[in-house]
Every structure is written in C-alpha cells, then in structure tokens.
Design a protein around this nucleic acid. Sequence first.
DNA 1: TCGAACTGTAACGAATATAATTACAGTAAG
DNA 2: CTTACTGTAATTATATTCGTTACAGTTCGA
Lengths: 143, 143
Amino acid sequence: MNSEFTIAVHSLVLLAYLPGRMASSETIAENVQTNPARIRKVMGVLRRSGFVETREGMRGGYRLAVEPGEVTLGDIYRAMAAGSLMPTWCSGDPEMDCVVGSNMRKVMDGIFCEAEKRLESYLDSVTIQHVLARIRECRERRA
Amino acid sequence: MNSEFTIAVHSLVLLAYLPGRMASSETIAENVQTNPARIRKVMGVLRRSGFVETREGMRGGYRLAVEPGEVTLGDIYRAMAAGSLMPTWCSGDPEMDCVVGSNMRKVMDGIFCEAEKRLESYLDSVTIQHVLARIRECRERRA
DNA sequence: TCGAACTGTAACGAATATAATTACAGTAAG
DNA sequence: CTTACTGTAATTATATTCGTTACAGTTCGA
C-alpha cells in the first residue's frame, strides 16, 4: 500500500478535527511527521478530487471541503493509490509457449483486480468521521 | 503486494500442471521469468509450509505435496506475504501532544489489519486448482 | 505597494527496498 | 566419483520512496 494514502487520510482527519480553520502544510506536516512539500503534493491531489479547498498566500492553507461523514477511505484510496495492490513485478510472459507461463499474468491480473475491489468495498465502509471517532475513543480510554 | 506471492502462486500452479513430476528450479524460473536462485528461495518457504516436497541432488527438484484444490491463495499469502498491506512508512507519533497525531498510527494499524483480513478471506476463496482452471480457459478461448 | 506568509511544482539527492547475479557447500543418482 | 541438483548467503544492480531545496506565483495586511 502506498503511504500517500496514509498521509491523505491523516491529513483529512486532522482537518476534520479542526473544522472551519485553515491548516498550513507545515502544521499538517508536523502532525503527520513528514515534510511540508510532501503534504502539499498530497493535498494537490485531494484538491483536484474535491476533498479540500486550498488558499494560497498569507493565512492560506487547507480546509475540508466535504462532510467528514461523506468521504470514505475508499474514495481516498481511489484518488491516491488506485491499483497499488498489484505488484509492479509480473511473472510469466504472454509470448512464451507454455500455457501456464503465457497466461499466468492475465489470470493474476484478474485476481488482483478482484482483490482490490474487495479491499475498496471495505474501505468504502469507513468514513473520515469514523476514523476521527476511533481516535477520540483512544483519548477516552486513556483518561 | 509482495511479488514473491506471485512467484509462489505461479510455481505451485505450474507444479499442479505437471502432476507427479519433479521440476527443477531452472525449469520453474524459466516459466516464471526470473532466476533459479530466487525460485529456490521461494520454494524453501513453500517447503517449510508443507506445500511442496523437494529432493536435492541429481534429478531432484520440486513437487506438489498437497491437492491443488486444497491450497488457497490465502494459505500462500499467509506463508509468503503476511502483513504486506500495511505500508512500512507510518504517519504520526505516539509521543506527540495532539490527539490526532498521537493516535493515528494505532487507528490506521487497525484499519490495515481489518483490510488484510478481508483480503485474506477473498484469497481463501481461490485455490490453486481454480487458478489452473482459469489458465486452461484462456487456452480454450484462444482456440 | 511592498514584504511576509503561504501554495504549487519540480529537480535533485539520500535512503531504502527489490531483483539479479554469483558463488559454493551439501546431497543424491547413476 | 562425477554430474545435476538444492540450500543459502553475499554482493551488486536497479527501482522506488522519501526528504530537501529551490523558486515562481498568490494573497493578506501594514
């Protein structure tokens, strides 16, 4: 799994936790524990997908553009990491003689494709709101 | 996803396609399109998990030790690539002050863990026999 | 209108992960 | 006792991921 997915989820949850406010890439980066440029790159994708609004210039930053209960991790996955389940390395070769060697790639593609559907369908059952709620549970359990 | 998983599935399907016979690491490597040392490494794991029998020395090699209809891709996944869904890179830091930053890691862990369960449950529904059958379908469709 | 505080983006380098190669000791068949 | 194998590890090559730096463009406010 792509770690940009994790960053995207973390950032959106943080924005949901700070409703209305603009958070700068530096603020988010500190919370996520990475550098601001990486955050800006991820947020660019989220902006183009309509999940956040951005404002450039002084007092600019990022703000959630959707209801936390309306965005699922599946939506974020599709925007950030679609196809990440399939390994880059593929076995076999369609040009070879053997039935197994020549068709394995296509068959495995189908399997990974179906596996990804299952994964997405689970991720679709979890919203940003859910994630934030789980985080708040952690706090209560500690208290 | 780990590409050793793909190699393992491919190898086992090939062995199921060549029932009874011993296949050498070189034969398998050619079919998979990689090098024999890599195959031997993967087969070592499959042997320790009981999926194949190996014989060293002349005319040695690998042979399926189980019924193709009895081994699922889930079994292979657990042997070869368990935990591969979770990214190595983690966001946040349990030591920090913010509720979000300090708990995100644990919450995401839980989500990836559940996602992996779903993935495994799908992979458990596909056996080596199924994969081989799909490959044979490719041949028939071509004819 | 100028400077400070931001985003957007790309280029580069460092660190890490993945795959190929090579080597060689051990084992079994003939 | 030689040949054809596996088992395993070390080394190198390659690809990917992540961090860093840089800078043009934008907006706010003094």
